[in-house]
């Protein structure tokens, strides 16, 4: 709380976590209105950058590989995005293929199964956000309260382990556990006097199974970042709270959670940006035609459409759509976060 108040006083309006060194007062100044002064600002900023570079050239050399990587692997391929608007032929190439305007997008959006896939993607992601996102935080808080070091280490290792198992094996485990004849879940149901259920062919069960097994797989590993953040909290805060007679729950509520908030918000923004992506490989392994109704997501839809006829243009159109939606989601999440919690990525 104290940090946030301090920053508000400094006039920036938001905590500029990633700007670090470059956030000089000139740059953070509110945008000027007249065009001449704006140009002046830009020119000045450029000059500052140049002199900075001359002074700290070692730092910029260290930065260079990452920038080159971005340019080569993320910006150059964007040239190919134009095939979303073309009738693309590999042999004719990107230039040689004829333009067809928005035909590929029309084909996508007039397709009820694509729309169903969009809906399923968003639902699976949304439910993951609601149910899976808080789990690592809770887990980290719980680990933090374990005072026996040996026990804590063992518990942590056990929860990390599933992260390192490949999706194929996890899917195999899930299929075996839920098998109607030999699966442990159905044997339990049977013993308790319930009907056996062929879970993986019933659309209603798909999302809980998918999200549940993902929580089991990733929660332990995802809790590491929160544990690291907790380790960074000033112990003096706890000491003084203890002096004031705060209980452990009160300390979690008034010290640990507020200190974690920046990390939680950033993780949240990153997650929201990935709302439109789900673990394609894992879905392919678990779904059946019988569960397409809830399990068919954008990526699996494109996979099936693409496999039949190599429809690159259609796939690119869907990808472009994905990217635009993801961008909107990230920007709005960031805006919301800045507005209501004063924490944001930029």
């Amino acid at each position: 709380m104290a940090d946030a108040a301090l920053d508000r006083e400094s006039g920036g309006g938001s905590v500029r976590i990633l700007d670090g060194v470059i956030a000089t007062p000139e740059l953070a100044a509110p945008p000027a209105i007249s065009p001449t002064s704006q140009e002046y600002g830009i020119r000045k900023a450029f000059r500052t950058l140049l002199s900075d570079m001359r002074r700290d050239w070692q730092l910029y050399v260290l930065l260079a590989p990452m920038i080159i990587w971005f340019v080569v692997f993320l910006y150059t391929p964007m040239y190919g995005l134009q095939i979303a608007f073309k009738q693309y032929s590999l042999f004719r190439g990107i230039e040689g293929s004829p333009w067809i305007g928005f035909d590929n997008f029309v084909a996508l959006f007039s397709n009820e199964y694509f729309l169903r896939a969009v809906k399923n993607t968003l639902l699976i992601s949304f439910y993951s956000l609601v149910f899976a996102f808080p789990v690592p935080i809770i887990l980290a808080l719980m680990f933090n309260e374990i005072h026996h070091q040996g026990f804590r280490r063992i518990a942590q290792t056990i929860t990390y382990l599933p992260h390192f198992i490949s999706a194929v094996i996890i899917a195999g485990l899930v299929i075996n556990f839920l098998s109607p004849t030999t699966g442990i879940v159905n044997i339990l149901l049977d013993r308790l006097g319930f009907e056996k259920i062929y879970f993986l062919t019933i659309p209603e069960y798909f999302r809980p199974i998918f999200i549940g097994s993902n929580i089991w797989k990733e929660a332990g590993f995802d809790s590491i970042v929160y544990l690291a953040a907790i380790a960074g909290i000033n112990p003096a805060l706890y000491e003084s709270a203890r002096m004031d007679g705060a209980s452990r729950l009160q300390m979690i509520r008034y010290i640990t959670l507020p200190s974690l908030l920046p990390v939680i918000m950033i993780m949240m923004i990153i997650r929201v940006g990935q709302l439109i992506e789900v673990n394609f490989e894992y879905i392919i392994l678990l779904y059946q035609p019988a569960t397409f109704e809830t399990a068919d997501v954008i990526s699996t839809f494109i996979y099936r459409a693409g496999l039949q006829n190599n429809q690159y243009a259609l796939g690119t159109a869907a990808d472009l759509f994905n990217a635009v939606v993801a961008l909107i989601l990230v920007v709005s999440a960031n805006w919301l976060s800045r507005r209501y919690s004063q924490h944001s990525v930029w």
């Binding site: 084909a107 199964y113 062919t201 059946q288 035609p289 019988a290 397409f292 099936r304 459409a305 039949q308």
Partner: peptide, 27 residues
């Protein structure tokens, strides 16, 4: 011709096998 085929057939096939499984499984 391929354009017509590509536009419709993937959906038709998805729908067909989706229904078939639902019928076989008795849902």
């Amino acid at each position: 011709e391929r354009q017509v085929f590509d536009r419709h057939m993937p959906n038709i096939q998805t729908y067909m096998i989706e229904q078939m499984q639902a019928w076989v499984l008795g849902s």
